[in-house]
Design a protein around this nucleic acid. Structure first.
Lengths: 219, 219
DNA sequence: AACGATATGGCACACGGTGCCATATAGCCA
DNA sequence: TGGCTATATGGCACCGTGTGCCATATCGTT
């Protein structure tokens, strides 16, 4: 999850990648230790011994460095989705791609399992400006996921609203499950997987039961 | 939609309400004319002849004044939802509450119908920081809507995830429909209603067709 | 070894947002 | 009516984020 772009060919590139990673690491450490708002950019750049001006050449703002891990995560997800066999139904492909990425991350970082991830999620949800940026980011991801689903199904996005609907439904269930998992303070990926399955069960039941009351037509 | 709190009893209250409304009006006019980022708070307060410091006593920040109309709208929606008969299924109540509010707004502002609303929506979606704030706001609304649904159904929120799921599903469909309607540049509320219905049809078909492929259990 | 491209540093500045205190105004009571 | 108190407003000074601009250092190439 650390080196997304694989082997940086250039020698200069390598250095850039290292300072970038150092900035992210230092920033996250500070954020988790003393909070997002209480951490100034000056403190971050002091820890890495880089100028303030350089920080803004690597990141568009303070939020971006805070969401750096989430952004890497999203790239993995999109790749996994693209790699799913074309025969799979959209929601199946989405769920399996998600499961793959979770499993991979849990495997790569065996230490705190989801410890750091969870702490970061908590901080994002407790920091208004970060929560907002994170939601906007998720929306952009949805857009790209919908484009990929449209490609898989061979329909025109903007012409057929089913890609957008399935992606948005997927995210809806995921968000409810993640929230519940976070709330419970769970550290176990297996626990998260179970919560996700349960949430899908409930969504299924909800769509066929009294709660919808014929608002959604069934065959 | 303008005076949410009804008749302000105090004489002082009246004045406060007037300056607040003047600030919102001036801000929106400036935002729509020259863009959100290009408008400074100094310009807004200059138009109303109030001090900068006073602005921040009325609004927590620049975003809040930009989303003021949306926030009033949400309050109307929550009231409408609370007023729906208890016998209605959750998703039915949600849809009818939404339809009510749209109809009321279209009725109250017969001039540009959704003209200003549409322009504001476009600006919000084209301004990253506003989009982010708007999404965070929508999330807070979802939380309150879920609480209301839980109350209606007599279940414990946090114990039963169906309230959160139905509200999130409702918002998912609404967002896709609104986006399509905005994209089409529609000004007609009737057109929006039709798009929403179509989106629900598609969601229903999607949940029972090939796209889900048995991921969601059916009876 | 010298040259060109690129990364970095160091300003100055605009803007958003907050704490603090002085002042003005509305509401109330004698 | 006159004065007292609460509250709303104004006017600073200040901090942090973010950007434009130019000088300087470093890397890569010939």
């Amino acid at each position: 999850m650390r080196d997304t772009a694989g082997t940086a060919t250039g020698l200069r590139e390598r250095k850039k990648e290292r300072t970038r990673e150092a900035l992210v690491a230092a920033a996250l450490e500070l954020f988790l230790r003393k909070g997002y708002d209480a951490t100034t950019i000056d403190e971050i750049v002091a820890a890495v011994e880089v100028s303030r001006r350089t920080f803004f050449r690597y990141f568009a703002g303070k939020e971006e460095v805070a969401l750096a891990r989430a952004i890497e995560f999203e790239a993995l997800f999109l790749d996994a989705l693209t790699a799913r066999p074309a025969a799979e139904a959209p929601l199946t492909a989405l769920r399996r791609a998600g499961a793959e990425v979770f499993a991979r991350v849990a495997d790569e970082e065996p230490d705190g399992a989801g410890q750091e991830f969870l702490r970061m999620r908590r901080m994002i949800e407790d920091t208004p400006v970060l929560l907002a940026a994170s939601l906007r980011n998720a929306m952009e991801l949805e857009r790209r996921m919908a484009a990929e689903v449209a490609r898989r199904e061979g329909v025109e996005p903007g012409d057929d609203r089913r890609p957008a609907l399935s992606v948005t439904l997927y995210h809806a269930v995921m968000r409810v499950a993640m929230e519940e998992w976070t709330e419970a303070g769970a550290l176990d990926i297996a626990d998260l997987a179970r919560t996700i399955d349960d949430a899908w069960q409930d969504m299924g039941a909800l769509l066929t039961g009294r709660w919808t009351a014929g608002e959604i037509p069934r065959p």
